[in-house]
Write a protein that binds this DNA or RNA. Structure first.
Length: 209
DNA sequence: TGTCGGATCAGCT
DNA sequence: GCTGATCCGACAC
């Protein structure tokens, strides 16, 4: 395996949020929460582009206490509670005041599977360990109190790594985003990206294009 | 202060 | 494949 490299602040500053959402496939999400280390390879993402994206929490320049972190510079985590139960992990991208984000929807477990299994209350070989945005957040110990942490900071308990995995374009499928049917025209945008034939990809595993 | 609905998941069929 | 659980954030009043 190539040398592990925490992705630098600069990586997150691009305004091409769909390009970054594709580029995140094959990168690693790593956490060290409660002194427990675990990681997984990103296999599914969705791009959200405020303010013109009705599905984005920053649509139409909306700012609230919860979404304020979306307007920070790229490279911080935006974690929010969905359905009152699930914590969903997003990577904020683009320069300050441009509210773009990428939802991490699924991982292929790599390190600390026993830790993840313990947090999830299931066995370490269960395919559902990190399959889906709520599931992976629970597995890695990601909660809303980590919203706003700087992923590029050497001291942060959450970060992204490039471990040298190369993803071929032909192995990236795309589809409409999940669960945003309310979002009008934006609901049709093919801004969900996932690895072809990867068993950790969540619902609807066929290409929508 | 009250209402509404959601970027989901697990368990069961 | 279908359905109930569950509760906070946003906004209307």
């Amino acid at each position: 395996m190539a040398g592990r490299r925490r992705l630098p602040r600069q990586y997150y500053q691009s305004e091409d949020v769909t390009g970054l959402a594709r580029d995140l496939l094959g990168k690693y999400l790593v956490t060290e929460v409660d002194n427990r280390y675990c990681s997984g390879m990103i296999v599914e993402t969705e791009a959200y582009r405020g303010p013109d994206d009705r599905a984005c929490h920053a649509f139409n320049h909306r700012r609230t206490q919860r979404t304020e972190v979306l307007y920070a510079q790229g490279g911080v985590a935006y974690i929010y509670l969905c359905y009152g139960i699930h914590h969903l992990m997003n990577v904020v991208t683009a320069p300050r005041d441009t509210a773009h984000a990428i939802l991490i929807r699924a991982l292929q477990p790599e390190n600390g599977m026993e830790v993840m299994a313990d947090r999830r209350g299931m066995s370490a070989n269960d395919v559902r360990l990190t399959k889906g945005p709520g599931a992976l957040s629970q597995a890695l110990g990601l909660t809303t109190n980590l919203s706003g942490v700087e992923l590029f900071s050497s001291a942060s308990p959450v970060w992204l790594e490039d471990r040298g995995v190369i993803i071929a374009e032909k192995d990236i499928y795309s589809s409409k985003r999940i669960g945003v049917a309310y979002a009008g025209e934006a609901a049709q945008w093919p801004w969900r990206y996932f690895l072809k034939d990867n068993k950790y990809v969540s619902v609807h595993r066929k290409s929508g294009l």
